[in-house]
Amino acid sequence: MKIIVTIKQVPNVTKVKWDADGSLIRAGLPTIINPVDKHAIEAALELKEKHGGEVIVISMGPGQVESALREALCMGADQAIQLTDRKFAGADTWATSYALGCAIKKIGDYDLVISGVEAMDGNTAQVGPQMAEFLGLPLLSYALGIESDGKKVQIQQKLGDFERKIEADFPALVTVEKEINEYRVTPMDKILEAFEKEIPVWEADDVDAELVHLGLKGSPTKLRKVFSPKIEKGKVQMLEGTPEEIARQVADKLNEKFLI
């Protein structure tokens, strides 16, 4: 089973800055693998351990994305590919999906593509579905569980208040929720092996991408304004009485505001 996992490196901070184009200034920020993407890697590794094959991790980003890919290798991925090119810079979800999709096409001959549902910095949940559309793959999104017989993939899908089982033939694309698994503690032997592996860097030309669809210029999303929400001090009202009386007052207040 050949599985490609797409991951994103995100800043591990609560406050960030943007440049004039509204793009995140990443220089100097501590970074991590987008948390749910670690569950995507784990899902791929578990499938590989069950069915054999290989796990290839790819990520698009500036040079520092190499550390996220190295960490994925440390978890046990077989290969990692880095997509780094100035031409990719400033991409919205559409241009990102296009660039990743081109790289996945170039890798070729895969059975599954797995990604996290969404990134913690953008929270759009668009890249996975858009990659599936671009690649012409069946999309199995919001997976809480994943199983395969080596030819098909079946997931337990989370849809708001209910769940359902869906399946598709290979090749397919799955986006996973964090509840799908507990990702492993990075094993020491894989750490030692990971630093002996080369991580190839692919540029736009390497994945046969058309420039018109890449980066800021290729992004249909136009940012009007990026700002941090103002934190305003709210008025606090102290309620008095017995716990029951206070609970009743809270309920009345919520009712007044049509919150319950």
Partner: peptide, 8 residues
């Protein structure tokens, strides 16, 4: 490698 050992 040392840093990754610490992280793990």
């Amino acid at each position: 490698i040392n840093k990754m050992v610490i992280k793990a």
